[in-house]
Amino acid sequence: MKEATTSASSVSVRHAHSGVAMPTKVHARDVTVHYGDKQALFNVTMDIPANSVTAFIGPSGCGKSTFLRCINRMNDTIDICRVGGTITVDDQDIYDPKLDVVQLRARVGMVFQKPNPFPKSIYDNIAYGPRIHGLVRSKSELDGIVESSLKRAGLWKEASERLNEPATGMSGGQQQRLCIARAIAVSPEIILMDEPCSALDPISTAHIEELIDELRENFTIIIVTHNLQQAARVSQMTGFFHLGKLIEFADTGELFQSPQNSMTEDYITGRFG
């Protein structure tokens, strides 16, 4: 069994997978984030396993989304934001100045809180990524990617007859699965999800959760959620953040049954504050 290690001794890290442990996909060491003078993230250190779902939980403003956005350098888009420490994906430093950020974001896809399809057809939404990244040479190849992405996102049955209709005509849950299909279309290695179900009803949420569980076979998934039950249902590892610090990072089953840190305990049992 692979042991998760951390240089930040204050963080409890436990792996308790009974099966084969996954290799580390994302390796974060002493990651800090400042927005101007304000420090938003303090020395976050964690190893995120490949082909697993890792959930980040914590109260609003705890830094979980900030850390998530470090993994595909989305924070670069904010002028006053400075990121410190190191993050590697498969041992490659993603903050290396020579690294092409556009390529990184193709490897590390993202799904946002609100479904944000382009105001285009269902087909064009999926085809957009492969086109701009030059991943296809022919129409038939593109058709194949659109079909397989929609199938992997569990949307093919509902969408195959209406590929040329506007994506905005779909239901919220369908739009979110379309956004996941769009992320998958460029064959990323990691998919970041920032509250992907917060705008969805329980049935649509269940579809997305089932999809997340299926997708982890081929992708590393990192999800930020305010819904603790969702973190418990979909993830294998959970990290609890508070005031910009990673407080505890552990096997999800253990964290929700017997957290080691009293702050984690108070938060997940609804005693916080």
């Binding site: 603790l228 039950q229 418990a232 929700f256 049954q257 017997s258 957290p259 305990e265 997940i268 049992t269």
Partner: peptide, 9 residues
């Protein structure tokens, strides 16, 4: 309530 952690135990 879907109890967790200490509450679940």
């Amino acid at each position: 309530r879907q109890p967790m952690a200490e509450d679940l135990r």
